[in-house]
Design a binder for these strands. Structure first.
Lengths: 126, 126
DNA sequence: CAGCATCCAAATGGATACTG
DNA sequence: CAGTATCCATTTGGATGCTG
C-alpha cells in the first residue's frame, strides 16, 4: 500500500510523449487546480491545511494529487518537519516561479474576455 | 439530430461557475488541443482539413468538438461557404488573438522546463 | 470536404470515511 | 495535521464507419 503512483520525485507524469513544448507545458500546468495552487504559493510558503483553506472547493484528495504531480514535475518543493502534530510546507521552485507571470497574464486575459463577453451580451440581447 | 450540445454561439461552455478569472481562463483555453488550434490559426485563416493535417494525432471528433467550443467561447470564428464540395474556414477573433502571446510565453516556459529537467537529470543520475 | 453517430476506454474529479 | 482508501459520477479522448 502507500504510494499514489510510481512516480515519486524524478519522473514526470506525462500522459503522452510530445515534441511540442507547448503541449508539454500544458501537461504540466493544465487542469483546474494547478495554477491556483501555484498562485497561492507565490504569496509565500504554505502548509497543506492553509492551501486547503485558501483554495475554495478543492477536496483533500485533489489537493494531494495535484501537489504530488507538481512536486514530481519540479514546480514545487515539499518539506516535511518531523514534529507532532506533523507539519508539511510547500514552496515554489525557481522553474515554478517562472510560471507566475504567465499565470498573471492568463488571469488578465480571463478578466478581459469576461468583460468582453458580458459587454457583447448587453448589445446582443438588447 | 444535429447539434453537439445546446450551446451554439452565445453561451459559454463552462463546467462550473467561478469568481476567479484565472479559473475562468483555464476553462476557456485548457485541455490538450485548444492552444494548438489557436497557434495554427494565428498563422492565418485555415480550413478544417488543413487544421486536421497540421495538428498531429488529433482525431476528427476531437477537432470538431474543440472547434465548436472555441467558437462558442468567441475565440475563433467559423465561416461556411456555400460551395460543392463544402468549404469551411476558421479564423482567430480579436479576443482569441490576445491569447497568442500568452501561448508563446507558455511555449517558451515549456522549452525552458524541459532543458532544465534534462539538464538536472544529467547531474542527478551521475 | 467537413463533418456526425455510435460505442468504448481511460482520465479526472468528487463524497465520504478513516488513520499515523 | 496531513494525509489515505474506497467507491462512484462525469469528462475527455479515441476507433471506426457513415453522409450531405
Amino acid at each position: 500500500m502507500a504510494k499514489i503512483k510510481e512516480n515519486s520525485t524524478n519522473s514526470l507524469n506525462r500522459k503522452f510523449l510530445t515534441d511540442c513544448n507547448l503541449t508539454y507545458a500544458v501537461q504540466l500546468m493544465g487542469g483546474r487546480w494547478k495554477l491556483l495552487i501555484l498562485m497561492q504559493l507565490n504569496a509565500g510558503t504554505m502548509r497543506y491545511g492553509e492551501l486547503k483553506k485558501k483554495i475554495v472547493n478543492i477536496t483533500e484528495r485533489m489537493l494531494t494529487l495535484q501537489l504530488r504531480e507538481l512536486e514530481a514535475d519540479g514546480l514545487i518543493a515539499r518539506q516535511v518537519y518531523a514534529e507532532v502534530p506533523p507539519r508539511v510546507e510547500y514552496t515554489l521552485t525557481d522553474i515554478g516561479r517562472q510560471l507566475v507571470p504567465i499565470c498573471d497574464a492568463l488571469h488578465g486575459w480571463g478578466t478581459l474576455h469576461r468583460s468582453h463577453v458580458s459587454g457583447e451580451a448587453s448589445t446582443l440581447f438588447h
